[in-house]
Design a protein around this nucleic acid. Structure first.
Lengths: 224, 224
DNA sequence: CCTGTCTACTTGTCTGAGGGGTTGCGGTAC
DNA sequence: GTACCGCAACCCCTCAGACAAGTAGACAGG
């Protein structure tokens, strides 16, 4: 039976109940659930509510229904995306992951960069140096520069990872810069040097410069 | 109107139609959809089918319905998880991302490892060397060793990334090893050396050894 | 201007009905 | 004994109608 006290719609509560039972192992992976009429009666809800709950879990990839055959368990839990992990993780942990991604991307970019990549890098660097008005603009243009480095690596996985990190880090960076107003400390030479290393196809130097720059960012969060 | 040719259930097709309209910008972010009765009539389907479609998209986080108020757009597209990107990407791109994650993890592990981490590392290495029966067992035990290295870094983001890469790489590694039967080429010293570097807290050496080992893996896929 | 009520509209839930697909059992032919 | 075929039971799919519950804007009164 579904718990009575709730503001949530009944269908949502039923979906939660079903997911709980699947997690508990009542219906193993690939197993068929009881028929709709049976299950609805057992849960004390109407068929439509149960069907909507099944649809909700189907949207999350947990259940799959086949006409005439039944409803089957296709996953034992909701896929907890990287997004959730990143959202709940410490900023420092996310920045460490960013360092991993970006230093390797700088390394790859140095060997794979095209002329178009270099044009984009130079352009974003100019924009970055021109925007000193607001903290948000500073962070965003800086992020665009780093995104251009990743793009030059021509690896879609690294790009996706960076994009996932951005929102979490952006929020933290803005808060930090507003708290301790020393925005112009960082090296304009650091970014320019990184571009030159990529242009020169010096992979080792690109990695080193990238690491140096990002490690400095990390220390701003650890040493507070 | 929904396309008539059906193999998929009507509700699923309606969900796709709605998602298409949202992608096309017919209903912007935060906008309210037409009422269920109106929309159902417009699409030429029953209200229950439309409701199930809405539930499916609600499960994917695209729509949210509030009783009495309406159905609202909460995302402009289905969150395409890292999983999908990894599945569609080249194996080499995934391995490059793994190199980024794992070399950094080795670096961090050297400074953060606990006694328990070292015990786990040594144990997985023993198991790894003991299992030479099947290709699958070899790959899985090897993966467990590398997972232990990541665990020693004590960074949940890096751990999540590694776990996402594993299925894709596992499949490719098994196929490769079965195609070219030279399974015992790789260095038992490489793994042992990595452990010793982590035990000795030599972060730079750990990173170098990890990179050397994984680069060798990458060449097995590029040079074929 | 503020506030409380009222009303039209919306989603939530249940019920009953019929259509169509799947599966496994049992009978029949070889 | 074995293999094939038909069929019936069971299942999900879809629709229609009705009523409950919630929301938000209109509106009158203070």
């Amino acid at each position: 039976m579904i718990s009575q006290i709730s503001q949530q719609p009944l269908a949502a509560r039923v979906a939660e109940e079903l997911l709980g039972r699947i997690r508990a192992g009542e219906w193993p992976l690939g197993h068929r659930l009881p028929g709709e009429t049976t299950l609805a009666a057992q849960l004390g809800v109407g068929r439509s509510s149960l069907r909507e709950a099944i649809r909700e879990l189907a949207g999350k990839g947990v259940l799959t229904s086949r006409q005439g055959a039944g409803v089957f368990v296709t996953a034992l839990d909701v896929e907890q995306g990287l997004e959730d992990v990143v959202r709940d993780a410490e900023v420092t942990a996310v920045i460490e992951a960013r360092i991993a991604v970006e230093t390797e991307a700088a390394h790859l970019a140095a060997t794979r960069r095209t002329a178009a990549d270099i044009r984009l890098l130079r352009k974003t660097l100019e924009v970055r140096e021109a925007s000193r008005d607001s903290v948000e603009a500073y962070v965003d243009t800086d992020t665009e520069f780093h995104r251009a480095v990743i793009a030059a690596a021509h690896n879609p996985v690294l790009g996706e990872l960076f994009d996932t990190f951005v929102p979490r880090i952006r929020q933290a960076m803005i808060a930090m810069l507003k708290a301790q107003p020393k925005p112009a400390t960082t090296d304009p030479a650091g970014h320019g040097g990184l571009i030159e290393a990529i242009v020169a196809r010096d992979a080792e130097l690109a990695r080193t410069l990238s690491r140096a720059h990002l490690t400095e960012l990390l220390t701003n969060f650890t040493a507070r």
